[in-house]
Amino acid sequence: MAADLTDAPAPAEEPAVQNILSIDIGGTGLKASVIDRHGTMIADKVRVPTPHPSPPGVLVEAIATLVKPLPHFDRVAIGFPGAVRANIILTAPHLGEEIWHGVDLAALVSQRLGGVPTKIVNDAEMQGLAVIKGQGLEFILTLGTGCGTGIFYNGELAPHLELSTHPIHKKYTYDTYVGNAAFETMGKKRWNKRVERVIALLRSLTHFDHLYIGGGNSKHVTLDLPTSVSLVSNEAGIDGGAALWSPRKGRHPEYDIGA
Results as ranks from 00 to 15, higher is better:
Ile89Cys: 13
Thr65Gln: 13
Gly96Lys: 07
Pro53Met: 14
Val48Leu: 12
Val46Ser: 06
Val76Phe: 03
Thr50Glu: 07
Lys68Asn: 01
Thr50Gln: 06
Gly79Glu: 07
Asn87Gln: 12
Glu97Asp: 12
Val34Gly: 10
Val76Asn: 09
Val67Pro: 03
Val67Ser: 08
Lys45Thr: 14
Leu90Ala: 02
Thr91Gly: 05
His72Tyr: 12
Ala64Lys: 10
Gly96Ser: 06
Ala92Tyr: 04
Thr40Asn: 15
His72Met: 07
Arg85Val: 08
Pro56Gln: 13
Val84Glu: 05
Ile35Phe: 14
Thr91Asn: 12
His94Trp: 01
His72Ser: 14
Arg75Ala: 14
Ser54His: 01
Val48Ile: 08
Asp74Lys: 09
Val46Trp: 08
Gly79Met: 08
Gly82Cys: 07
His72Arg: 14
Leu66Gly: 02
Pro81Gly: 05
Gly57Val: 00
Pro71Phe: 11
Thr91Val: 01
Val46Leu: 06
Leu95Asn: 07
Leu59Ala: 04
Val67Ile: 13
Pro71Asn: 11
Lys68Tyr: 00
Ala43Thr: 06
Asp44Gly: 14
Val58Leu: 10
Lys45Arg: 15
Asp36Gln: 15
Pro51Gln: 05
His52Ile: 02
Thr40Met: 15
Leu66Val: 01
Ile63Phe: 04
Asn87Ala: 06
Leu90Glu: 14
Ile63Cys: 04
Thr91Arg: 09
Ile35Pro: 14
Val58Thr: 12
Pro51Ser: 02
His94Asn: 15
Val58Glu: 13
Leu70Lys: 07
Leu95Thr: 01
Thr91Leu: 08
Ile35Glu: 15
Ile89Leu: 11
Ile35Lys: 14
Ile35Ala: 14
Gly57Cys: 01
Pro81Val: 08
Val76Met: 09
Pro51Ile: 01
Asp36His: 14
Glu97His: 09
Pro93Lys: 13
Ile35Gln: 14
Gly82His: 08
Gly82Phe: 07
Glu61Ile: 00
Lys68Leu: 09
Ala86Gly: 03
Pro93Thr: 09
Val60Cys: 05
His52Asn: 10
Gly82Ser: 06
Asp36Phe: 13
Val48Tyr: 10
Ile89Met: 10
Pro93Arg: 12
Val46Asp: 03
His94Gly: 02
Val48Cys: 02
Pro53Ala: 13
Pro49Glu: 12
Glu97Tyr: 06
Asp36Pro: 13
His38Thr: 15
Ile89His: 06
Gly57Asn: 12
Phe73Gln: 11
Val46Asn: 06
Val60Phe: 04
Gly79Ile: 05
Val67Leu: 08
Thr65Arg: 13
Ala86Val: 04
Arg85Trp: 02
Glu98Phe: 00
Ala83Ile: 02
Arg85Asn: 12
Leu90Phe: 01
Pro81Thr: 08
Ile89Arg: 09
Val84His: 06
Ile78Gly: 03
Thr65Pro: 00
